[in-house]
Structures are given as structure tokens and as C-alpha cells.
Design a binder for these strands. Structure first.
Lengths: 203, 203, 203, 203
DNA sequence: TCCTAAGCGAGACGGTACGTCTTGTCTTCCA
DNA sequence: TGGAAGACAAGACGTACCGTCTCGCTTAGGA
């Protein structure tokens, strides 16, 4: 088997980075393919050897980040997961903070719609499957899909606002606030009877 | 003052309607100015006599809808408002249902980003000011802006999902679900001690 | 009826002139659409409002010149035409001299092949029809199409060489030389018995 | 010194043949390097190991053919040559017929301009030098270069037309026709007093 | 017979031009 | 005088080739 050209990986990285930097600077959809390749010191045609269009590049970039998050959060959820556990929420907010640039581009609309939708759908689907696991087949007081979508959209909406404000609050603070605002009521509204830790004191 | 040419109003209406119809058919930002004016039986240049660009038209359309909602909800809120009151929520979900086409275009991303942002910011600002009124200066347990943004994003996120699903649930049902999922926890997290009506039974 | 925009005619003229000048300067098929529109001070897209591609522009330019030639030569041929008459030959060589730039671009290959072919075919067809008229149905010693093509190609070949050499000889001299070299033998080979004027003296 | 790899010769042959076949099929300048190397089952880069560009390949191919013609015609001309001799003309038309594919590609414009020009110039130069030999320093009635170019262009023009028509007439017939149409008049116009054989009867 | 340089396949890359599309401006004409 | 028609500049799009290059594999021919 032929060894894959090591240049390709470098090219992908350059393109991803250029897209993020330029999107922050002038807005995702004012960014031109030419802008990207100029910034990456590549020929414009080279872009098309690797990606179909700008959205394709963004979606690929999103995927790498999502995979990264999953690698961290999956084990956490898998082991000792209860719906009332705050630690995955903490992980998510911290991950968002670390990758704030990409999150902002995707969440703060302006054209990155395909990526935004995919992320929202992904979050909702994940929430739904975890809720279903937590139910063990018991009936829920309201349809699970409503609760799951509520959860996903409210969390992403809050992250969006938080990042856009320049992270005026620390990630852990936001995670706790979100936990108090959203998680507990979701659990109760669903009629689940889990052990909810008392809200910690925050100053 | 000169009376405004009645034709102008008609032109505006034709353009607004064309934008909505075509956006639903092929997605807001695949719609071309030419598409719009063709559908409205107007010359393309005429468009520019009235609006700066497509976003301008959409924002104007949004404004007419928002004004419409305000005309209904303002009196409600002004009179007997308590944070625990579900009736404004009902009004909002019903309004969304009636104007589902426009809401979907604005909320379901794909390019209508300026309008989406404006709507979200407007909702968050409204929420914040009503919360502040309800606090009468008492301190809140968490920053009001967090709660307000949480509220606005989660509601719009839920509406978005609901409309996109083809309104599988009636507006009143959704309003109650949202009330249970979001409002009560917002109130409690803020440390407000209002009279929360017991969740109604829904079948 | 709407009167045609006078700008269009000006644009056509600018494009034709730019094509000719630039083709002489750097060769027809090194000339870019961008080159043409830059030289004409027009936007590149404007080119495509008027012509399908570069060949289309050249063919249109050719047509205007051919029409111009026909306007002069048709009456000559129509009236007192005999095959032995030198005056149409004179007219052609003079016309070539006046429009030397365009003739050179078309005849001196390098890509203007569609135009070259059309011109050659046109010349051959014209020659053939005039020969047939001159025959009044009498049989010819060799097929007319051979003689006609021989005539057309040899004349255009000679014009090509002459122009490319920088017209080292006057048009009238070339016309006489061509007459002596080609016309008389064509007439005799066909077996026509026309009155051939004795070659004039040239110094 | 290393002996040259026999594969090279095979590669050259494959490329030449691919160029000819594909040029006939879709026109010389619609043929891409990729087309050629695909057809020859070679890598695209390999092409550039042997030729600078497509024209280079065609010119090389032309050269092999011209050398081939010269090998036959040179002895003929050298020995018993008089301008009135028809046999070299016969040889040329027969050679064109045998190599009709290549002749058509080169003569029938469409982009093979460099090769066409070279062939025409070569033919004209040959003609001129033979005429000069025949003159033995006697003055000619018209400049030799005019006669030589007339001769070269008319012959190639006639061959072009003949091949393009699908050789509706046999090579020998065409050679005689050309002889009658062109050679005799060239001789007479130059003022040469050679022994011109009476035209043979053709049916 | 081995080994070693050449021939070659594969394909990334920078570049240039193409023809298309949409935008927003402007001008001319018509009702 | 408002709108229709449409010319125009600008500029991005995705595609197609070009010629260059690097990387390894294969193989022919000299040691």
C-alpha cells in the first residue's frame, strides 16, 4: 500500500486554520475561497482538490472538533452516568471555551447554517438517547423529543450568547448556571425521580 | 405632506410575499433578487428603489410581524403581569403558529442570519426587562442577563424545532411544555418567590 | 418599438478593435478575454453579453469585412463579368491591403482556425459559382470544384504570404502576378476559350 | 555510457499515435495532454519527460514524415530534374495520400498552426531553391519568391482540400490536375523556356 | 546475478483562463 | 414621474488544463 502523502494533512490543517481566522475577522460568509487559499499560501485550485466548497471545509472542521469532544465525554457518560450528574455539562462548557473560535463561527449564524444545523441536530439526538437510557422504558410525562430539543437548543443558545459576550463568566460558572436553569427542570418535568445534588454555592 | 402612492404599498407587499414563498420553496439564500422580482412581476431595478438588499426586505418583514405580536402581548404584560403567568407564553406560541412561514425562514438559519440575530436579541432584551421589573430591585441569585438569554434562546430554539417538525403538537401544548421546562426553573433559579400555578394536566 | 441602445454599437466596436490590436501584438490565441475587455475598458462579464467566445467575436468581425468586400465586388462581377477580367482580382488585393490587420490574423493560422476555414470555404464557393456561370453549361476539362479550390487556396495563400512579408510589393503588382500565375492557367485548363488580355508590362 | 532504454522509443511511438488518433477524433486542439497519455496508457508526467508540449510532439511527428518524404524525393530531384517534370509532384501527392491522417491534422488548421506554418515555409523554401537552380542565374520575369510561395501554397491548399473531401479523386489524377493548373503557368510566367510535356489525356 | 540508475505512475501543487452567476448602479424610454 | 428594460462593472464561483515537482515502484542493462 502506498503511503499517503504527508503534504495532504498539512494542507488540510492550513485550510482549516485559515477558515477560522478569516471567519472571525470578517464573518464566515464574506470569506472567499481565494481569501482562504491566500492566507494558507496555497493555490485556489488546490482548495478544490480537497473540499467541494466552503461549507464542506467547515463541516469537516466541525467533525474533527466533535470527535474530539466525544473522545472526552463518551467515557464519562458511559460509566457512572445519571441524568443529574453535572460533570458532562462542565466538560461541554470547558470544551466550548477551549474551541471558542470555532463554536462562535458555527453558532453565530451568518451563513454557517449547515454546520449549525448539524451541530444542533447532533446535540438533540445525543440528549434524546441519554434520556431514553435514563428512563429504562418508563413512560415520561412529556414526549422525550420535546425535552431533548429543549435541552439541546437551550444549552447551545446559552453557549452562543456566553461566547459572543467574550466569556464574561468562567466556564464552570456557566455550567452550573445552566445546570440549575435547565437540567433540574428537565428532569422534573419528565417525571424522573433522580437524585439531584443541591445547587452549589456560587459567588 | 404628499399622500404616499398606493402603488408603493402594493409593491412592498408583493415583494414580501414573493420572498416568503420563494424562501420556503428553495431556501432563503438561494433566492435571488431576480427571482423575487420575477415572481412579483416587477423589474429588478425596482427592488432597489425600495430596499437596499434581500436582508433589508426580510428585516422589514420581520418588523411588521414583531409589531403585530407586540400589539397583542404588550397590554397583557402591562396589566396583570407576574412572571409566573403562562398567558404571554401561550400568545407567543400561537403567534408563531399563525406566522409559521416567516418564523421558519428566520429561525431555520440558512442565511437569514441578520434577522435571526435581531429576533434573538430582541427576545432576550424583552425578557431581561420584564425580569428586572419583576425583581423590583431585589438581588437575583444569578445574573439576570444569563437567565434572560437562557429564556430567550430556549424558547426560540423550541419554537424552531416545533415548526420545523410540522407542528406535531398544538401550540397550547407546546406553550405548557415550555412553561414547565423553562419558566419555573428560571423563576426558582433567580430566587424569585412568585406564585407558580400547578402544572395543568395535559393528555 | 424600443430604440436600440446606442451604447451597444460602441461596445461592439471597442471589442472588435481590441481583439485586432491585441492579436497582432501577441497572437490571436494568446489573447485572453480579460485582455480584450481591459483594453476596451469594459468588464469581463460584458463580453459575454455580446459574444459567446473569442471565436464568435472574430467571426462577427470577419463578417463585417466580407460584407464590405462584397458591397464593392458584387456590382463589378455582376455586370460585365468575364473570367479573364482582372479587375475583381485588383479589388480583392486592394481590400486585403486596406484591412491587412484582420486578414493577417485570420490567414496566419495560430488558432483563428474557424474564421480561416470559413473564409476559405467562402472564397472557394464563390469561385465555383462564377466559373459555372462562365461555363454556361458547357463541360469542363477537369472538375470545376478542383479548379475552384485551387483558385481560392492559391489566392489566399499568396495574400497571406504577401501580407506577412510586410507588403513588399504593391497590391496592384501582386494582383497582376497572381493573374498571370493562376487565372490564365485555370482558364486554359478548364478548356475555356475566353479572351485573355495580354499580360501588361510590369517593371 | 549507458545504452538508451528501448522503452523510450516505444513511448514516443505510443504518444505520436495517440496524438494522431485523438486529433482526428476530436480536433487537434481539443486534445489534452491527459487524453494523450490516457490513450497511450502512460502517466501524464511522463509526457513531459519527452516533449515540452503538444506542439512539440506534433512538430517531431511532422519531422519524421518530412524526412520520410525527402528520402524518396531527393534522389529524384537531384538526378534528372527539370522544372517541367511531373514525377516529383506525383510523389508528393502519393505521399500525402499515404500519410493522410497527419497531413489533415496539420493542414486543416484548428490549432496545429506551428506545424502548418513550418510545413508551408519548408515547401516554399524548397520550391524557391529548385527554381533558382533551374534559372542558372538568368533573370526571372517576376520575383522568384512570389512564384515559389504561389506554388507552395497552392499545392498545399489543394492537398488540404482533396484530403478533407475524402480523396474523391486518385492521387495521380490530382497530381496531373495540379500540374496543369499550376506548374505550367509558373514556368511560363517566370519566363522559363523549358520543355513542357503536352498534358496527358485523363478520363 | 546483482544493483543501480533510468523510466515511469501517481498525484499534490501553483497558476491561469474559462464561462456563469449575482449584485448593485445607472441610463434610457414608456405610460 | 415611477417603473420596465437592460447595459454595465465588479467579483466570486467551480472547472479544466497546464507545467512542475516529489515520491516510490519497476526494470533493463552494465558490473
Amino acid at each position: 500500500m502506498r503511503k499517503k502523502d504527508r503534504r495532504v494533512e498539512r494542507t488540510h490543517k492550513l485550510l482549516r486554520e485559515a477558515l477560522i481566522i478569516l471567519s472571525l475577522r470578517k464573518g464566515y460568509d464574506s470569506v472567499t475561497i481565494q481569501d482562504i487559499t491566500d492566507h494558507a499560501n496555497l493555490g485556489r485550485a488546490t482548495f478544490y482538490l480537497h473540499y467541494r466548497d466552503k461549507d464542506d471545509l467547515l463541516l469537516n472542521t466541525l467533525q474533527t472538533i466533535v470527535d474530539d469532544l466525544l473522545a472526552v465525554i463518551e467515557p464519562e457518560l458511559g460509566n457512572v452516568f445519571t441524568l443529574g450528574d453535572i460533570s458532562p455539562i462542565l466538560t461541554i462548557f470547558r470544551h466550548a471555551e477551549e474551541n471558542r473560535d470555532l463554536y462562535r463561527i458555527i453558532l453565530r449564524g451568518r451563513g454557517a447554517a449547515a454546520a449549525e444545523r448539524r451541530l444542533r441536530e447532533y446535540a438533540a439526538a445525543s440528549a434524546q438517547s441519554y434520556i431514553e437510557v435514563a428512563l429504562h422504558g418508563r413512560p415520561a410525562a412529556i414526549p422525550v423529543e420535546i425535552a431533548a430539543n429543549y435541552f439541546a437548543h437551550s444549552m447551545l443558545g446559552l453557549i452562543d450568547w456566553w461566547l459572543e459576550k467574550g466569556q464574561a463568566y468562567p466556564a464552570d460558572y456557566m455550567a452550573h448556571a445552566f445546570y440549575d436553569l435547565g437540567i433540574t427542570s428537565v428532569i422534573k418535568t419528565l417525571g424522573l425521580d433522580v437524585d439531584i445534588p443541591a445547587p452549589e454555592k456560587m459567588e
